[in-house]
Design a binder for these strands. Structure first.
Length: 480
RNA sequence: GCCGGAGUAGCUCAGUUGGUUAAGAGCACGCGUCUCAUAAGCGCGGGGUCGGCGGUUCGAGUCCGCCCUCCGGCACCA
């Protein structure tokens, strides 16, 4: 069986899951479920990023051992994702032994290849951002993102990764694999960045305990983002399970936010090249969700709890919104009005009502038993074929919104088909018996097909419709 | 500042290489209608100088130039 290995970004555990992070997980989940539906042996990886100074600080503020704090957050995140029906197969934490093994192995490979060297880094450092700041990035000597916090001047021993050496190999890779970075707009941005020249990046911090020590210099730990990237490989065996690693590496797809494309499309492949390991096949940088046109942020206090959004009208409503109403790759906007609309229009009126009317007629006129009689045209079945083709083309290219739209085209056509064939009229005339059976069969078959196509997007509704116990058709309208 | 993207009906958006889709879809709204159904479905309709100005062309949302507005990227932001 052909395998498919996909990942999402791992999440920083010093804040809670919100609509933005949920968006990424849901879209990745749709892809994972689609691949499984297509018969791929699929591995869908998610996880948490824990080696951050902010996590360390936050834990001590709460009087917790950092690991205990992370344990608690693992629960929070797993619960949130489960609530959204995100079907991850594995969940990695960067404090796990398997991850330490992977990081140690990869860093050592790069070091042995001569692409990590010792140097000195000095500059302004913002503890909250956990990064060095250029003089030009400071506003009145303070970090613009944390104006109340004095940046620290730090001079420390650092190890650097020879990223500059990989400019040409990266350019070659981009040229040979145009699909490597998607969408194209992100690809072009990254390409220009590489063309303009790459500088070496620091990959370690000195004098810290919260992190993974460098194997040749235990006094330094691996810089958090360098550490984090490696999760994709350590989860599938790098440094501890060669057989598993051989089976699953390289990843087929990294689903990430557009803000971290540089790490994934430049530094990560360069790290792997240095370690003589294969690079991932594809990286997809999705857009961000806004709320009523405004950027969501902690400071604005307009973060949406995904549990609340799923709770109002169901997880499927939220998933359908995020997948069908947002062109995957671009930014999207969320509003409660449009959320309700998805439920009323798509799930209740078009899909739910269709299932309800067809099942009622099938039971009333044919005791729920349908079979083709050959009396009638195959127009609906032919449309179904076209919809499947459109759907697959869209989903294979990660145009998730077009895939959803294709499925709903068939649903709309089935409602029109019923109006055009008027089965209730056929039921009044015994001469139309075969015709009626065929019409109901065609409609039921179109529903079945739609439900299958929608399984990756709205898994719970899809399963409900396909459930042979016949419990479909219980939906009602959104409360007004 | 430099590079890139976008500006099409109230809202969200389609519109391949310019001409039988030069004005479309969905939602919302109005009217009509069937009755199998979750006050759902189906049909019809209103409404837009396709950001502005100029140009190329027999003909331009669709090409070129300039301008306006919004957005993204410009290296260590998980």
């Amino acid at each position: 069986m052909t395998r498919f290995f996909l990942t999402t970004a791992i999440d920083y555990v010093n804040s809670q899951p919100h609509l933005g992070t949920s968006y990424e997980k849901i879209c990745a989940d749709v892809i994972a479920r689609y691949k499984r539906l297509c018969g791929f042996d699929t591995l869908f990886l998610m996880g948490n990023d824990e080696h951050s100074q902010n996590v360390f600080k936050k834990a001590s503020e709460e009087g917790l051992d950092p690991l205990a704090y992370c344990d608690r957050m693992e629960d929070v995140f797993r619960t949130a994702w489960r609530r959204l029906d995100v079907s991850f197969d594995d969940f990695i934490r960067t404090t796990e032994p398997r991850h330490k093994a992977g990081v140690t192995d990869l860093v050592k490979r790069i070091y042995d290849a001569g692409d990590i060297y010792e140097g000195v880094y000095e500059g302004w450092y913002c503890v909250s951002c956990e990064e060095f700041k250029q003089e030009k990035d400071l506003a009145d000597g303070n970090c613009p993102l944390h104006p109340t916090l004095k940046p620290e001047w730090i001079r420390e021993k650092n190890y650097f990764f020879r990223l500059s050496k990989y400019q040409q190999p990266l350019l070659d890779h981009f040229a040979a694999h145009p699909e490597f970075m998607q969408p194209d707009m992100r690809r072009n941005e990254i390409l220009r960045l590489i063309e303009s020249g790459l500088i070496d990046v620091s990959v370690s911090r000195a004098g810290q305990s919260w992190g993974i020590p460098l194997p040749w210099d235990p006094g330094s730990v691996v810089y958090v983002w360098f550490d984090a990237l490696i999760n994709y490989a350590s989860a599938v065996g790098l440094g501890h399970d060669p057989q598993m690693f051989a089976r699953w590496w390289p990843a087929d797809l990294h689903v990430i936010g557009k803000d971290i494309t540089r790490f994934h499309a430049v530094i990560w492949p360069a790290m792997l090249m240095a370690a003589q390991l294969p690079v991932p096949r594809q990286i997809f940088g999705h857009g961000f969700m806004t709320l009523n046109g405004q950027r969501m942020s902690k400071t604005l206090g307009n973060l949406i709890d995904p549990g609340d959004a799923a709770g109002r009208l169901g997880t499927d409503t939220l998933r359908l919104y995020l997948v069908k109403e947002v062109a995957f790759g671009g930014d999207g906007d969320f509003s409660w009005e449009r959320y309700d609309e998805r439920y009323n229009v798509d799930l209740a009126n078009n899909l739910g009502n269709l299932v309800s009317r067809v099942t009622t007629m099938a039971v009333r006129y044919r005791q729920g038993r349908l079979a083709p009689t050959g009396a009638g045209s195959d127009q609906l079945a032919r449309l179904g074929e076209r919809v499947i083709a459109d759907y697959r083309r869209a989903m294979d290219g990660f145009a998730l919104h077009e895939g959803a739209a294709a499925a709903f085209r068939l649903i709309d056509a089935t409602n029109e088909f019923i109006a055009a064939t008027s089965p209730w009229a056929l039921a009044k005339d015994a001469a139309s018996a075969d015709r009626l059976t065929q019409v109901l069969f065609d409609a039921a078959e179109a529903i079945r097909l739609s439900a299958v196509l929608l399984l990756p997007i709205i898994p719970s509704s899809g399963r409900e419709i396909l459930d042979p116990s016949g419990r479909a058709g219980t939906r009602r309208h959104a409360p007004t």
